[in-house]
Design a protein around this nucleic acid. Structure first.
Length: 571
RNA sequence: GCCUCUGUAGCUCAGCGGACAGAGCGCCGGUCUUCUAAACCGAUGGUCGCAGGUUCGAGUCCUGCCAGGGGCGCCA
């Protein structure tokens, strides 16, 4: 709608230039935006931005524009306000029509076409199968899934992908850890080294394994235990994610890149383009670094000259022992992603991967590919915190997998609820750190934004239950009987399209959470004021209002769905 | 040291270069004989970390400081 207003203003400006009222100049793109205050219309266009170019006062320019504005079906009153705003109000008639339009079109009313015919991929979670889903992964999961849902709402065909590193050292340690736990179950004295996974969950798996297989695995190598651990972990991970309504379409593992030899062909491609060299230390190394390398006695390794692309130092691709670092498979994986032809490939990562993501980008460039489709949402740290009465302050609950002391997604859901976890993890800018106060989310659950939003849906459901009992319907409703308040809600609901578009264009899925809360804030006062089943409400008015609440309920159902939250009939 | 994120009401946070800076929670005072009060209404509460700059206009953009988080491995 704002786009159409901007286009109309641009054509008005052109016509003013054409008839000589304004001098010739390139018309800048000035966005119309919703004003903060009531009484300033629904869309405001600041003509002040044209004053210098047109060499006229902003108010005069606004006048010239308004006089030449083509008719717009949604526009009602159009006013000029100092210092030079053009305030456009949406016509009441248009708003009334939207009530029926929303109900007739159902989900299509919200659907955008900016992604029509385009494919998007969201890669998220991507936790190694070395333990349960932690609170950090949970934030990643919620943000990634919301992003995917928003892209779908924008018309994209979306694939949700999970990438995991199962070829590295961590998985070897995992296998060995389980092996030792298994031997402990058989009564052997086996000590777990400090760098092994200490978590109790491995004891559980070992116990099951001993129960099922007896001592038949006593002589097996760690690989066997690694495979068992990986398989069991993935079962847990998928089940945990499913508990907050998240499911991936594809699982991509690092091992497959080795099996297909893809990582080696990528390395050769880089070498052919002259970005690879063998050395004990990188080309720009200082005296300290060279001395350090000498002290460690390293043989030559394989380096990627990432400094060519602006990196601060070159990176090792293959260690001197012949084992690749994470960098090589990561580049290979992303080149594979791009070859699959996605228009957008969103990657949700913790900010601790910032440098790594930059190197991957350099690698993609070095291969001669365009990294533009790759977008990364970096998440700042999330901590589970609890009030510590002894200290008199909030203290972080540790979440190291290997230390065996952490809060998992399962714990969080058990302590709060899937809906509360999803909302609280989503309703925060990815750029901000998040302290997830477990006790607070539980304690305050009665005054929570989660319930505030869901209650809007519930209250509608209550009206329909009662109406059905009294045999009331909304057939032949005359929407002219709707009042100012109801139209205020429709006006706000119409912003959904803009919110989704902005969330998608700027990769800010949290916007939808804030918007849902705002819309509920518009809804609740109306619910109190605009009654349906009240003895003083005339039958025809009740019908119109019933239809309005049906549309409102559809809006909330849609919004809750976009956030992966449930829409309960009762609370 | 370099890179990056954050700093807005007592607390947790929104805020798109535009008009007098916004919510929720907390505190204070009101509102249920009629669709769920998990709600609503009202009051209180701000030198937008500090200092410059760009602009007709800066919480928003630029530079420099200050404070806090994260990252800078032949780890994964």
């Amino acid at each position: 709608m704002n786009k159409r207003l901007e286009a109309a203003i641009e054509s008005a400006l052109r016509s003013a230039q054409h008839d000589g009222a304004l001098p010739q100049f390139t018309i800048p793109r000035i966005p119309a935006s919703p004003p903060k205050r009531a009484g300033q219309g629904d869309w405001a266009y600041p003509a002040m931005g044209l004053a210098r170019l047109a060499r006229k006062s902003p108010l005069d320019i606004a006048r010239l524009i308004v006089d030449r504005l083509p008719t717009l079906d949604f526009a009602g009153k159009i006013e000029i306000a100092p210092p030079g705003f053009i305030n456009c109000t949406i016509a009441d008639d248009y708003l009334r029509k939207q009530v029926d339009a929303a109900l007739a079109a159902e989900e299509a009313w919200f659907q955008l076409d900016i992604g029509a015919g385009k494919r998007a991929q969201v890669e998220f979670v991507s936790a190694n199968p070395s333990g349960p889903i932690t609170i950090g992964h949970t934030r990643n999961a919620v943000v990634g899934d919301a992003m995917a849902r928003l892209l779908e709402a924008a018309g994209y065909e979306v694939q949700r992908e999970y990438y995991y590193n199962n070829a590295g050292n961590q998985m070897i340690i995992l296998g060995k850890s389980l092996q030792l736990r298994y031997l402990q179950q058989l009564g052997e004295k086996a000590e777990l080294p400090a760098d092994h996974y200490q978590g109790e969950y491995l004891v559980d798996i070992a116990r099951d394994l001993a129960a099922e297989r007896g001592d038949s695995l006593r002589g097996e190598s760690w690989q066997v235990f690694k495979d068992v651990a990986e398989q069991v972990m993935f079962g847990w991970i998928k089940r945990s994610l499913a508990s907050i309504h998240i499911e991936h379409d594809a699982f991509f593992n690092e091992t497959s890149l080795f099996e297909s030899e893809h990582i080696w062909s990528v390395l050769e491609a880089l070498r052919a383009k002259g970005h690879i060299y063998q050395a004990t230390h990188w080309e720009g190394a200082g005296a300290d670094e060279i001395a350090d390398v000498a002290a460690k006695g390293y043989q030559p390794a394989t380096w990627f000259r990432s400094t060519t692309f602006g990196d601060e130092k070159d990176r090792v691709m293959v260690k001197s022992d012949g084992v690749p670092t994470y960098t090589l498979p990561d580049i290979a994986y992303h080149s594979d992603k791009l070859e699959r032809g996605f228009d957008i490939a969103v990657n949700v990562l913790g900010t601790d991967h910032f440098s790594q993501a930059q190197v991957v980008r350099h690698g993609i460039r070095a291969l001669g590919m365009d990294p533009a489709p790759i977008e990364v949402i970096f998440l700042q740290m999330v901590r589970a915190v609890r009030w510590n009465a002894d200290l008199g302050e909030f203290a972080a609950v540790k979440q190291s997998k290997r230390a065996g002391d952490f809060d998992t997604l399962d714990d969080l859901v058990a302590m709060t609820s899937a809906d509360a976890v999803r909302y609280h993890m989503l309703a925060r800018s990815p750029n901000s750190q998040l302290d997830f106060d477990v006790d607070q989310v539980v304690k305050q659950s009665n005054e929570n934004p989660v319930y505030y939003i869901q209650n809007a849906y519930v209250r509608c459901a209550g009206i329909f239950r009662e109406a059905a009992e009294r045999g009331l319907g909304d057939a032949d409703a005359d929407l002219n009987l709707l009042g100012e308040s109801e139209l205020r809600f429709v006006r706000k609901a119409l912003e959904i399209g803009n919110v989704i578009e902005q969330a998608v264009r700027h990769y800010e899925p949290q916007k939808i959470a804030f918007f849902a809360h705002e819309l509920a804030g518009v809804f609740h006062p109306i619910y109190d004021e605009v009654r349906v089943l009240h003895s003083e409400v005339p039958a025809e008015t009740a019908k119109a209002r019933l239809r309005f609440y049906r549309a409102a309920q559809a809006v909330f159902r849609y919004l809750l769905g976009l956030m992966g939250m449930s829409a309960p009939e009762r609370m």
